[in-house]
Write a protein that binds this DNA or RNA. Structure first.
Lengths: 341, 341
DNA sequence: AGACCGGTTGTTAACGTTCACAGTCGGGGC
DNA sequence: GCCCCGACTGTGAACGTTAACAACCGGTCT
């Protein structure tokens, strides 16, 4: 009852009339202004309830010049990592009272980020989170004249934007050191695409751990994050008889590596140990269950919103840099190297 | 040059003055109104360019009462299916000139959908796509007084909303018939949660195929879509000696089943054949590569936007019902039943 | 010649909110 | 008794756009 078809939605003036006050008083009630007599407030609230009034946020945004909407720019939200990050962002934003508007890019061209940012700026977002894991995207971001407060996720160190990221180098180290500690002579690496900062960080961690142990770093094999590219790298590795340990830059590629090894009759972890990265939900059920490095995507998403909201509401601050540590997850794909080398 | 710090953004009136016309003429140019002299149009365009003017969409939305924003309500966008669907939705919406605002729910409580819809309505979205695969969500949707044009994805047949979905029954049939055609006596089933419409559809398809072939349908094992629940079902199935074929309601659970079989020394497809559902990117690299039923999530997302936009821009139409067919993908996890039964 | 018409442009009034400011009322200090 | 102040409330004007309507121009129709 009340709001029947064809009837125009009630506005503040309607509520005001119903409650016998001015529209401004209604506004004050809605915005929790202190100086309203509690009896008046009650009357207004009752009128609001009776008419089923809902404040028009568009009109509000026009005059306040704040839309309470945050933009998110991301690449391929179909992947587990970006999807989880965006999920964390969305939850945190809603909890903080912001709407989320998403743009997900399919290609990595440098103009893409710019266009997406323009697009969101047109919409009137108050701030933007850019999940920009490629170096080119990070650079584009750094070069942009930033009219809007921006936070980058995995976005490198350049520019004036705040950055939230997982410590990829530490992750690469963790994986490599684990394999070394099991007694492996050296550790091979299947990397992600070289344009990706995450891939670069993992390579760096792997190299650092190897160097620190005084071992030679073999030539890494480059993949593109897909299971198929891992499979191909796995076939190459299966042919080399001196390989006993492989650190693969993500779990999907690790699956491909596992598959290739299985096909070639290479036993994991009997002959070769494998470590992945990400800890996707499937990893624990691979054959064998995958030892991997866990990234807390959800935390990254939440933190990016915290940083952004702090910037938005706490006045202008210096750019922040927040790093989330990765975690080592031991499962069944790693073991000591075989006796006979 | 041009937009310097501290300078307020140019508005239509500024452009009008610069071009020596009225603001209304500027508006006309911006909205491609036909009756503008081409010379005037050029002058306005030039002024816009010179001042770096961008139209304020919030002000526009206030007067037109259309925000050109579409809401999306979804469950756990971390899963491949929903993530892909949302991705398709986002791409299609942007192409059609709409912004996307996302709400992703974590719990399945019936009030959740209602709250999300309210939330989006407050924001002033023109329409909503609800990815509501649970029966409870579908019912909530059907019961709601829909103030806003709505399209449901996988949302059952009830209510007045349009629905876009994959033909789950056909998918269940496809999987079961394939196994039957290989010579299996009957087919076991690991289902999704009973509250999910998709799970229900797949069960129905499986049952129908079995009945049509005159076979007895065994008691299905219920999972929750997770690899772990598949693993548990797999352990049960491995203990039963008469099982030669299993249709698992999604690929993640199929992975768990595969893992359990491997652990118990049950060979796939040597002793037992397994068929999954979804065709996630990992499936082709499972051990063995998984025979499965492919869902075109992207198409579902795109279609849902097409239906919604048609409703929004083509005047009021009857609710539509659009069904996307699933596709059978044969890989290495299925074979004829073992000789010795 | 006068009415009329289509193309083009300008003027004024919305849209629904918040902001700035101006009141009103009652009480306390002097 | 007067002034001032704080609590409360109302009035008018923004915000930047589109919609509705009026006005003007030149030409065509009768």
């Amino acid at each position: 009852m009340g709001s029947r078809l064809g009837r125009r939605l009630p506005v503040m003036a309607d509520v005001a009339k119903e409650a016998g006050v001015s529209h401004q008083t209604v506004s004050r009630v809605l915005n929790d202004h202190p100086n309203v007599r509690s009896e008046t407030r009650a009357r207004v609230l009752q009128a609001i309830d009776k008419l089923g009034y809902r404040r028009n946020l568009v009109a509000r945004a026009l005059v306040t010049k704040r839309s309470r909407t945050l933009g998110v720019v991301s690449f391929d939200t179909t992947l587990y990592g970006p999807a989880s990050t965006v999920y964390g962002i969305e939850q945190a934003a809603r909890a903080a009272g912001y709407f989320i508007s998403i743009v997900s890019l399919k290609s990595i061209d440098p103009g893409g980020v710019r266009d997406a940012l323009d697009y969101l700026a047109d919409q009137g977002v108050d701030g933007v989170v850019v999940v920009a894991p490629q170096r080119s995207a990070a650079r584009a971001l750094a070069d942009l004249p930033l009219a809007i407060p921006t936070v980058a996720v995995e976005g490198g160190q350049a520019g004036e934007v705040s950055v939230v990221s997982v410590d990829q180098v530490a992750g690469g180290r963790l994986a490599t050191e684990h394999l070394l500690s099991l007694g492996h002579e050296t550790v091979w690496h299947v990397s992600g695409p070289s344009d990706w900062l995450e891939a670069e960080g993992r390579v760096a961690g792997w190299r650092a751990a190897l160097e620190q142990a005084g071992r030679e770093a073999p030539q890494p094999l480059a993949g593109d994050w897909s299971p198929r590219s891992g499979y191909e790298a796995g076939r190459s590795l299966a042919r080399m008889t001196d390989v006993t340990a492989v650190f693969v830059a993500n779990d999907q590629m690790a699956l491909g590596v596992l598959r290739a090894f299985t096909e070639q009759g290479v036993s994991v972890p009997g002959q070769v140990s494998v470590v992945g990265f990400d800890d996707i939900p499937e990893s624990a059920y691979f054959s064998p269950p995958l030892t991997t490095i866990r990234q807390d995507f959800d935390a990254v998403g939440r933190h990016s919103i915290e940083v952004l909201v702090r910037r938005l509401e706490g006045g202008l601050q210096e750019r922040e840099r927040l790093v989330v540590p990765p975690a080592f997850v031991r499962r069944a794909s790693t073991a000591q190297p075989p006796e006979g080398r």
